[in-house]
């Protein structure tokens, strides 16, 4: 969202110094953990144990990053996070793609081809977004087992598609609701059918919501822990689960610098997406959030 000159801002006559001071204070609060993670990951263990965690590293080194990526012990294997990182990638890409496509089609149907009960169906799908996932863990584990997908990336892909559908449908539905019906009617009179109207008329205008949905789903699925922890074990785990295992393992010397490097590696993809396309993400959020 751009700074809107005509917005409801009130020009405070009060002491603006205080306002800026407070904002900077808050900014420090939000930035501090990230800063600490970063400097810690660049320090050798000795410096961490002897020094102040806020201090910049005396001799920054990527030793901890290299170890976290390729040599840290997670469970019984000591090959770092790299395998798990690829697990997450292999999980995220198909899950995001498929759930976004389905959501777009659902949103199209629910706004432009309404039929009796469309609202109930939407309500049912929407409620699926809110349920505490604890309530589906055991049945899901059983079903994945029966399907032969237990502790596998395809299994997690399935899970994330299923429980992401509500969100993607919601996003596209709210976007397409504002898409003029007359365009659909015009295309219909021009002789375009169901898929042609979608493909030629709606989809080319959907880039903003596609970006929002993809970013949202990517963040959501990448960051998931509950499903990963429940349905995978060992080498099949996604990044978040591996990170937790690495950090909470209690064998040997606690290498805080490796922990922090690992956490940063786990956070990097989503942070990168946020930095590159955060504007879209926030805009989508805002547009979706409170335009009553």
């Amino acid at each position: 969202m751009s700074v809107d000159a005509g917005s409801a801002a009130i020009s405070a006559r009060g002491p603006r110094i205080i306002i800026y001071g407070l904002l900077i204070l808050f900014a420090v609060f939000y930035l501090l953990p990230l800063y600490v993670m970063l400097v810690t990951s660049l320090k050798p263990l000795s410096e961490i144990q002897s020094g102040n965690m806020l201090q910049l590293p005396q001799a920054p080194s990527f030793y901890a990053w290299e170890k976290a990526w390729g040599a840290a012990c997670i469970g019984v294997t000591c090959e770092g996070l790299k395998g798990f990182f690829w697990n997450s990638i292999r999980m995220v890409v198909p899950a995001v793609t498929i759930s976004t496509i389905l959501g777009a089609l659902n949103g199209y149907v629910l706004t432009k081809w309404k039929f009796r009960g469309h609202k109930l169906i939407f309500g049912l799908m929407l409620f699926g977004c809110f349920i505490p996932f604890q309530v589906v863990l055991v049945p899901m584990a059983q079903v994945l087992g029966r399907l032969g997908l237990a502790s596998s990336t395809p299994g997690l892909v399935l899970v994330h598609i299923v429980y992401g559908l509500g969100f993607t449908t919601l996003f596209f539905r709210n976007f397409y609701v504002a898409f003029p019906d007359e365009l659909v009617r015009a295309a219909m009179m021009d002789g375009a059918g169901f898929f042609r109207i979608f493909w030629r008329i709606l989809l080319p205008a959907s880039l903003p919501i596609i970006v929002v949905t993809v970013i949202y789903q990517f963040t959501n699925i990448w960051n998931d822990f509950l499903f990963g922890a429940s349905f995978t074990s060992g080498d099949a785990a996604p990044m978040t689960v591996a990170l937790n295992n690495l950090v909470s393992s209690s064998t040997g010397v606690k290498e805080y610098n490796v922990d922090m490097a690992a956490a940063l590696i786990a956070a990097l993809p989503t942070l990168l997406v946020y930095v590159v396309a955060g504007r879209y993400f926030v805009r989508g959020l805002m547009a979706g959030a409170v335009k009553g």
């Binding site: 007359e182 365009l183 009617r185 295309a187 009179m189 021009d190 375009a192 030629r200 008329i201 205008a205």
Partner: peptide, 18 residues
């Protein structure tokens, strides 16, 4: 509609934006 050989001009013009 597409088989009636009828054309329509809409109130909002309904031009395909893309």
């Amino acid at each position: 509609p597409s088989r009636r050989d009828i054309a329509m001009v809409f109130q909002s013009y309904a031009l395909y934006p893309t």
